[in-house]
Structures are given as structure tokens and as C-alpha cells.
Design a protein around this nucleic acid. Structure first.
Lengths: 155, 155
DNA sequence: TAAATACCGACTGATTTACTAGGTAATAGA
DNA sequence: TCTATTACCTAGTAAATCAGTCGGTATTTA
């Protein structure tokens, strides 16, 4: 699992699409404007997202992008994996012959942790994020004194 | 939060240290040998880890590195943050004036998710990983037909 | 004193990031 | 049918990062 700024751009763009795509396709120009990401970079990201069927493009005037499936069917892990190809870290793979145990032991530990991170992100969908925010928005509207209490935290 | 190969190297090296450092300091040469990481690269990583008090170096023959605190006090997030300086993604920071809502809304969603990932990794300590593996090892010894059932998974 | 180790800084090829430039293909609307 | 709008595609690029080499200095043990 790999989590880089590229993955962040992709998740951010997909969030924008999920939020604004309710009543028609969203153009990359809009996302570029909204999120401050260059148009051509978005094109590259969306080429990868499209190849994994996470988005669907419509050409011509009035065109743009739809989500490829419902927001609930798209996990954060899906998005990150689409744009961030990650190579296998452990050279030993399934083979058990890697430098006599010490290395493989550590690799197994890393693999387990890596799987956990992956499963954690696979359990969060775009839909979850959107709903979570709508809930918070209602909360803020009904109680204006509570302002962004979690967005300033580390990470 | 950022999770790159650099972070993986650091976590792997720290795991090696936690596993082999029971009865004395571990040299970078040993870790280099065990994990297949170049010595000089390890030196760079350990300079960062040392500056965060995650490891403690001892010079001279018989020297090497100890963990800077107990394995239970060192989280995976600590390690990754030490070597992977990550810049703030959202240019708006705490300010609310960023391009009229649409961007900031998405940024807030990302920040929340990012915090969740961070907290997830902050809740896993080196000690947890080591104990988890020792448990599995016992299990394998008592039931040899069960072989590496989770290490081949995605991520 | 010699060897082993941490510690330090400069440099480097390869890769990735984020972007620019310059197109072609498809389609809606005039 | 023409034109504007959009997706879609390829090539190139400056800057940063990755992972490493090289050549040291400082400290400590034997």
C-alpha cells in the first residue's frame, strides 16, 4: 500500500465528483478550478481511474465525468490503487528462502501491517465520506459554535 | 499522512531492531545485511529516527543502536512521521477563505480521512507487531499445515 | 594504537511528481 | 454542416524524491 500526494489528488478529485455529480456530468475544468489541480494532471489521473471503471467520461458539449459506479461501491483503496501502482516490497514473495528467516520474519510483519492498512482503506467508501460530511454540516448548522474541531489535527 | 517506500524501509529496520535488540545493540551493518538495505541509506534513516528519539546510538566496537524507548511506546505513525516529512496538503489550512467552499469542503473531508489513517497507525506499536508475530509463530509450530495464510494478500 | 562503530556531508542516476504544450476524436447545438 | 466543447492521447520537462556511493570525522573498546 502506498499513500502519496498523487493518491490524495485522486481522492480529492473523486470526492469533488461525488459531491457535484448529482445532477449531471462534471468537467475536469470544473474540478481543476475547484481543487486547484492542473487540468492535464487531472487528465492523467482520470485516465487511470477510467481504466479501473471508477469514472465514466462523456464527450462533447455538456459532457464530463460521472462516477463509474455508486459512491458506496468505490472505496478509498480502489482510488489509491488505481493511480498509485505499488510494487511488491518483499523480494522474497511467497518463497521462504530469503536470507535465512530474519528478513522474511520482518517482511511478514510488514505484509500483515500493510494488509491491515489496505483493509482499513477498503472499508471506507466515497459514500461514507460524503455522508459523514453532510452529517457534520447539519451539526454545524444547528450549532454554529462548533467549528472544524477535527480538521486541524495532525496528519 | 504519507506512506512511501522510505517509510517502509524505516518500519522494517525498526522491526529488525525490536526483534534483534533484546540482548545488546544492533549495528546498521547487521540490519543492512538482514534487510537488504544499503548501509548509507540506513544511516540517513537512522539520523531522522535518532532526532525523534526513536533510536539511540552507541559508538565504538560492540556499539550499535538501541530502541530509544520501549517497543510499546513507539507507534508505526511515529516511525513514518520521523522519516517522511509531509507537507500540509490543504493550502487553506485553518483559514476558511479558500475558493468559496467547494474546495474547502473536499479538503475537510480529506483532512478527516487523513486523521483517521494517522490515528489508525498511531494505535499500532512496534511491540504489537512483534507480539502478533510471536503468537503466529507458536500457532504455526503447533499446526504446521497452516502456512502464511495472510501474507500473500493485496497491499 | 588499531579496529569498529556511529555520525556527517556532498554528490548522483533513476524515478516520480505535477505540470505545459499540442494535438485528435466525439458530440451537442446553432 | 459548422463550431464550440469536451474527453482523450502523446511527448516533453523542471523539480523533488529515492536509494545509493564515496569519503570522510568522532568516539569507544581492546
Amino acid at each position: 500500500m502506498r499513500l502519496s500526494t498523487k493518491g490524495r489528488y485522486a481522492v480529492t478529485a473523486m470526492l469533488d465528483l461525488a459531491l457535484n455529480g448529482k445532477k449531471g456530468p462534471v468537467t475536469l475544468a470544473e474540478i481543476s478550478e475547484n481543487q486547484g489541480i492542473s487540468l492535464s494532471y487531472l487528465e492523467q489521473l482520470f485516465a487511470a481511474l477510467r481504466s479501473k471503471d471508477l469514472v465514466r467520461g462523456v464527450r462533447g458539449p455538456g459532457g464530463g465525468y460521472y462516477l463509474g459506479k455508486s459512491a458506496d461501491e468505490i472505496s478509498i483503496a480502489n482510488i489509491i490503487c488505481a493511480v498509485d501502482e505499488w510494487v511488491e516490497f518483499t523480494r522474497c514473495g511467497g518463497r521462504q528462502n530469503c536470507s535465512g528467516g530474519a528478513r522474511c520474519l520482518t517482511h511478514t510483519l510488514w505484509d500483515d501491517l500493510s494488509s491491515e492498512i489496505f483493509n482499513f482503506l477498503a472499508d471506507i467508501s466515497l459514500g461514507d465520506l460524503v455522508r459523514r460530511n453532510l452529517g457534520k454540516k447539519d451539526e454545524e448548522e444547528s450549532n454554529l459554535s462548533v467549528v472544524a474541531n477535527s480538521s486541524s489535527q495532525a496528519a
